[in-house]
Structure formats: C-alpha cells, structure tokens
C-alpha cells in the first residue's frame, strides 16, 4: 500500500528539527532510516501528519571515542557504519558482534542506531545490548537535554521515555572494565531475521576469577528488553562453574521472564530457548572475561 499524505521537513540541524517537533507535537514523527517507520506508514498502521527527516542533520552522524575509554554514537549513525567500525569492535565488541544479526544488508544500509533504540521493538538487539553494557541515551528538546540510563528508557511495547518534542541525539557506552566478557546468543529462522529469543550477557570477574558483576538481558520475550535480575544475582560472588551457570540459566528461563506465544513460537519453546541460550551466552562471556586480563 501507499502512505497517506504528510507535511515534510528536512532540517539540517538538531535545533531546527526540534522546532518542527515542538510545533507539531504528537502529529509529528522523526524520520531516521525509515526501515521501521516507512513499512508501518505503507500499511497505514502509522499515519503521522508531519515527518521531520533527520537524514540531512550531519551533526547526528558520528562514532567517537570518549575520554574515559567509552564510545559515543550519534543517533543517525547507520547500522552498516557501526558494523564496519574498528572503534566499535575495540570498545564495544558486543555491539560489533550483534550488527550482522540485525536485519539484512539492504536494511543496515539505511537503518540507524538511534532509530532502533527509539522504535523500541521488543525484538531489537540494540535495546537489550545497550542495557547489558550499561549504556545511556542523551535526549534533547528545545529547552535542554537529559541523560537516561538504557535500563530506564524502555517502558513498554514500542514505548520509551521520549516525549513527542524530544529527539534521541546520542548513545553513550562506558569503558568495559578489564576481565569483562560478553556474548549475544539468539535463534532466528533466517540469519538476519528478528530473533525468536535472544540474550545478551556481560560478565566481569575479580582477581580470583569470581563473578563481580553479571548482566543478562533478553530480547523477544516481553514488551521490551527484559533484564534477568534474579539469575544475575545468583552469579555474583561465585566461581562460574558449569553447574552455577546451568542453574542461573534455569533461573533466567523460569523466574525472570514470562514469554508469550505467537505464530513463530510457543511460550514453552521460548522458555526452552531462553535457558539454552543463556547457558551458552554465560559460558562464552565467562571464557572471554578470563582471556581479557
């Protein structure tokens, strides 16, 4: 189908984009890569009467190191740029490893980091990963800006703390401490389709190889990214033996999540996958943590 008519603005600065958003409120939508917004407009599931195209806002396209060893991504940085960045692979290897799993190359050519975060699809890899890495997002409106931690940003199905007059302008990720390992595991029907279940794990070990901190975050099992707090707690202070990891994966799959059924997978199958994938993710994250002295 074809999208209904809309007013179109193509600002070249964030300032100017914010003027349009504040003027039109709930009637307006930002247009980033369009890879989620345009399909919903083509099917008339979304009918914004104003589009504010961010594709000419050059200040939103960047991948930058930050002085503390972390990484900053401008909201309009496209998936294919993140996928090819050596800085991303050094500083946030979890993001680097996830990129080829996000949609097809043709979609990664246009889709953006900020668009994926703002869209808040419960099946999106980048939301779950941002939480696992302790990331933060910078939101701006005409009067100022605020920083929101990734684990507070997602509040429901396709819903975030973003107000209609706000833009997500940047994602920021802290330096990964030494002896930190990471992994993303997922099952999808085709290599770069949305996952039936996915899980990101980040584990930091102390000098005695005991788990100092663990973060486990699921995608595709709820209304947004779901953090497995109970499972992560069982790991803290422990030596990560196969038994401990196995038990944590059990806890994650049974106590931390409540997946739903749809035509792609039953709730029961999702739970099964969640257990297996968590075990694999923790094994790999643990191995990698030991290797990063």
């Amino acid at each position: 189908m074809k999208p209904p008519p809309f007013e179109y603005y193509a600002p070249t600065t964030v300032e100017e984009a914010l003027v349009h958003l504040s003027e039109h409120g709930y009637d307006a939508k930002a247009l980033a890569g369009g890879q989620s917004l345009i399909p919903t407009m083509n099917f008339r599931l979304a009918q914004p009467s104003v589009l504010v195209d961010l594709n000419n806002v050059s200040e939103l396209f960047y991948i930058r190191p930050d002085e503390n060893g972390g990484l900053r991504l401008g909201a309009m940085t496209r998936h294919f740029q993140v996928e090819r960045s050596s800085l991303v692979s050094e500083r946030t290897p979890l993001i680097y490893e996830a990129m080829p799993k996000i949609a097809t190359p043709q979609i990664r050519s246009r889709g953006t980091f900020g668009g994926s975060i703002a869209h808040a699809d419960p099946s999106a890899e980048l939301g779950a990963i941002s939480i696992a890495l302790g990331g933060r997002f910078r939101l701006r409106n005409q009067t100022g800006e605020r920083w929101v931690p990734a684990n507070e940003f997602f509040i429901g199905m396709f819903t975030t703390l973003l107000e209609p007059d706000e833009l997500l302008v940047e994602a920021s990720f802290p330096n990964m401490p030494p002896r930190t390992g990471w992994a993303l595991q997922e099952v999808a029907r085709r290599p770069n389709d949305f996952a039936l279940v996915g899980v990101a794990a980040v584990v930091t070990l102390d000098k005695k190889n005991q788990c100092q901190k663990a973060r486990i975050v699921f995608l595709s099992v709820g209304d947004g990214p779901v953090e497995a707090h109970r499972a992560a707690e069982t790991l803290t202070g422990q030596t990560l033996t196969p038994e401990i990891i196995h038990a944590a994966a059990e806890t994650a799959a049974t106590a931390d999540i409540d997946p739903g059924s749809d035509i792609h997978a039953s709730a029961e199958y999702r739970r099964h996958l969640a257990g297996v994938l968590t075990r694999r993710a923790l094994d790999l994250a643990f191995e990698r943590a030991k290797g990063r002295g």
Partner: peptide, 27 residues
Amino acid sequence: CEHGVCGSCTILFDGQPVRSCLMFAVQ
C-alpha cells in the same frame, strides 16, 4: 511487498544496496 521483506525493489543508493520501497523519492 512494500515492507522491506521481499528484496525485489533493491537498488544501489550512493553505491549501497537499499530497499527503494522504504525511502521517499524526495530523499
């Protein structure tokens, strides 16, 4: 399909493969 799934509308845009059904001509 006009929702980015079938790939039959793929073109090169500034050398990159893209779905032409997921862009507006004005862009």
